[in-house]
Write a protein that binds this DNA or RNA. Structure first.
Length: 752
RNA sequence: GCUGUUGUAGCUCAGCUGGUAGAGCACUUCCUUGGUAAGGAAGAGGUCAUGGGUUCGAAUCCCAUCAACAGCUCCA
């Protein structure tokens, strides 16, 4: 007999071979009807899955539609139903993976005729038919060989491939049958299709087979399902609400920032109000950095290519950078030539074209005086072109040709829009001899960097091509590493706490041992990763480990936040780097009068000002706390008879250091209040007969939820100023929007 | 970069199967001087993303380009 440990503390004996369904029925008819799945020893299983004979005692729970785990099971089953409907409507469709997500599910499919949004109603109608029939999900097992040929017979090539790649190591494979539909699947599933109360196909998008951009792109059909219509409606409403908080929507409405196609995609134009928010954040962190012993520095937006060759940025992130700027006008051409050659995309025609172009430059007459008043002398262009022309023509192998181009380019003066600030800060560190007594040196700068992000990645403020990091580079002795890391983690946490961002997660990003993209010796990496883990563990923080998420020069601790539609973004980061000091040959003199290699920490508590402000807008739904609000208060007159007094109040407030405006339009007060409220101004100051007579202002606090309660009453101006000062000083948080709806989720489960 | 969807006034959107543009809000002017979320009237505002094509005729159909959005891949 097997002993089941029930959630209420009681236990129950069942015979081997019995199933959760039997137990549910034994407990009660209603429970059996409500049962969706069961949890045995912490694992969710089908109601018809027999209890294993071993162990003899297990924890046991019947899951109904009230348990969160049930929703996952339901969604995974609905994925099967959707796949079944698609198979009926699009014969010849091959299935890949179809997991449940936090808010829904998807199924990756490869259909001979592509599915479009217009097909959704058809698919949904077919799904409805399947659900109405309420056929059971039946599990059966096959050996790997049998399972493989079953998938082969069903012409499901992705399933066969998946068995060959991954599943063949298991003793057997499980399948689920629902009517004519059979799918290779780990389960578990709902007992029958009738349990699906409500569902909706959300969207369709491309997705690569096994998440590999080199493999075939399939169609991913996103959908969601619930036990009842009400929950689905609630979810959809929540999605709508979330979209209203979208920083791209609010950024436009509240005139915070704009992006112009003419200025360039992914390049943010900060409008006065957004710039004010950013400026206040910058001042906030600047003051904090001075207290913490940082030294502000300034460095330019571009740097020589050699600088980035040394750091490793230039060759490594070639595709993610704006093209280099060569002083020699044919530099860009040669650069393209080399790139094509390196990528094996240099056809004979293209090569001939480049050669012809180069040749034309070698023939250029050198004018007397050699002065075209450009950044480069014509004579030099001709000489350089001749040198390359000769070397390239004489090169016997592709590799020689590559070297000829490469050497030529290395001899050319070229610049890069800086993709990172560290090489510049390193130059400042190197500009003078350093003693251990000087360390740690902490160089801070709001450094603007440029990265050529893929066009499909750009969006709002969260992924842009030019952004400003609240960056700093710390140079220290190995002994100082731990305390510097701790101080910086505290700084990030302080920033998040001040803003009231509590819903973040911490990731220790380490190297992927399989990948070759990382520079530096193994011991350095091991040491760095160990140190970071110690520091995080020592702080008692919850964290996950992101394998392969490290920077190419070192591991890091990342602070990750969700946006209004549930996408995750890295904000603050603290990175440990033993490699760049090596590459740039940094040193300091130790107490032993010997030269030592310093260790570097790269860190940015906000991450990028653009992304941080984007998240911040969504966090506050545009209603910033008083200390950050671009417009802190607006004076609203009841009629223009009070404008003169109101202007005096406005001036007084401005002189007291507040950002205020006045609405003196000949509008009714209700309209003015509505406008101020929609602009999310924290306080409105109403001025009418009473206030003018008493020398007061009527305060309206927009952070109060109940609209009728917003009128705080008439106060002397001095009291209002006092109240504002207090609130700004405390950096008091007024409103936070916490609801996050999401379609995406990293925790895909029950693939099948 | 890939797949899909979208692009009409400052904003949000309508414009059926081709017959050369419409609403609300915002804006300007005038009237209204009103006590806590929309007072009234009039006016102005668009080469229908851009470039080609089909057609007697294109916002509408076709192609290309650009951009935005969703997802995938990428993310120092």
């Amino acid at each position: 007999m097997i002993t089941l440990q029930l959630p209420d503390g009681s236990s129950r004996q069942v015979a081997p071979g019995s199933r959760p369904r039997d137990v549910a029925e034994a407990i009660g008819k209603r429970l059996a009807q409500a049962a969706v799945a069961a949890k045995v020893s912490g694992t969710v299983v089908d109601l018809d899955r027999e209890f294993p004979a071993d162990p003899a005692q297990v924890s046991f729970q019947i899951l109904t539609d009230r348990d969160p785990e049930s929703l996952e099971v339901l969604r995974h089953s609905t994925a099967h139903i959707m796949a079944r409907a698609v198979m009926r409507l699009f014969p010849g469709t091959q299935l890949a993976f179809g997991p449940a997500l936090a808010n829904g599910f998807y199924y990756d499919i490869d259909s001979p005729t592509p599915i479009t949004e217009a097909d959704f109603p058809k698919i949904e109608a077919e799904m409805k038919k399947i659900i109405t029939l309420a056929e059971p999900f039946e599990r059966f097992e096959r050996s790997v060989d049998e399972g493989r040929s079953l998938c082969g017979d069903m012409k499901q090539n992705y399933k066969v491939e998946h068995i060959d790649d991954e599943l063949k190591k298991y003793p057997s494979l499980s399948f689920y049958r629902q009517g004519e539909f059979i799918d290779l699947c780990r389960g578990p599933h709902i007992p029958n299709a009738g349990k699906v109360g409500a569902f909706k196909i959300i969207s369709i998008a491309g997705a690569y087979w096994k998440n590999d951009a080199n493999r075939k792109q399939l169609q991913r059909l996103y959908a969601t399902a619930f036990f009842n219509q009400k929950d689905l409606d609630t979810y959809l409403t929540q999605l709508e609400e979330a979209k209203k908080r979208d920083h791209r929507v609010l950024g436009k409405q509240l005139k915070l920032f704009t992006i112009s196609q003419e200025a360039g995609q992914g390049l943010i134009l900060w409008m006065p109000k957004g710039a004010m928010v950013r400026n206040l954040l910058e001042t906030f962190i600047k003051d904090e950095l001075l207290i913490r012993g940082y030294s502000p520095v300034y460095t330019p937006h571009i740097g020589r290519l050699d600088l980035y060759r040394t750091s490793g940025h230039f060759p490594y992130y070639r595709d993610a950078q704006y093209p280099p700027l060569y002083m020699n006008p044919i530099g860009q051409t040669i650069d393209t030539w080399l790139t094509l050659l390196e990528k094996n995309h240099l056809t004979t025609e293209r090569e001939q074209g480049f050669l012809a172009l180069l040749e034309s430059f070698t023939k250029g007459e050198i004018p007397k005086g050699d002065d075209d008043n450009t950044q480069y002398s014509w004579g030099q262009i001709v000489l350089d072109a001749r040198a390359l022309w000769v070397e390239y023509k004489e090169a016997a192998t592709t590799d020689d040709r590559r070297k000829a181009l490469q050497n030529w380019l290395h001899g050319q003066e070229g610049y890069l829009l800086k993709p990172m600030n560290c090489p510049h800060h390193i130059q400042i560190f190197k500009a003078q001899p350093r003693s251990y007594r000087d360390l740690p040196v902490r160089l801070a700068e709001f450094g603007t960097v440029y990265r050529f992000e893929q066009s499909g990645e750009l969006g709002g403020l969260t992924r842009v091509r030019g952004f400003t990091q609240d960056d700093a580079h710390l140079f220290m002795t190995p002994e100082q590493v731990k305390s510097e890391l701790e101080n910086n983690i505290d700084l990030v946490l302080m920033v998040l706490k001040t803003i009231g961002l509590n819903d973040y997660r911490v990731r220790v990003s380490v190297r992927d041992p399989e990948s070759k993209k990382y520079v530096g010796a193994n011991e350095l990496w091991e040491n760095a990763e160990k140190t970071l883990l110690e520091v995080v563990a020592g702080r008692g923080m919850n964290y996950s480990i992101g394998v392969g998420e490290a920077a190419f020069y070192g591991p890091k601790i990342d602070f990750i936040i969700k946006d209004c539609i549930g996408r995750e973004w890295q904000l603050g980061t603290v990175q440990l780097d033993y490699n760049l000091p090596e590459r740039f040959d940094l040193e300091y003199t130790g107490a032993d009068n010997q030269r030592h290699r310093p260790v570097m920490v790269h860190r940015a508590p906000f991450g990028s000002m653009e992304r941080f402000c984007g998240i911040l807008i969504e966090h506050f739904a545009g209603a910033f706390p008083l200390w950050l609000a671009p417009e802190q208060a607006r004076i609203v007159t009841v009629s223009d008879r009070f404008n003169e007094y109101a202007r005096q109040v406005e001036t007084s407030l401005r002189e007291a250091g507040f950002r205020v405006s006045g609405d003196y339009r000949p509008e009714k007060i209700g309209a003015k209040i509505r406008d101020g409220s929609l602009e999310k101004i924290p306080y409105l100051l109403i001025i009418g007969e009473k206030e003018q007579a008493a020398g007061t202002v009527a305060l309206r606090d927009e952070s109060i939820k109940e609209m009728k309660a917003r009128d705080v009453g008439s106060l002397p101006l001095a009291d209002v100023i006092q109240r504002f000062r207090q609130e700004v000083q405390e950096k008091r948080i007024r409103n936070i929007s916490t609801a996050t709806a999401g379609l995406s989720d990293s925790g895909a489960k029950y693939a099948g």
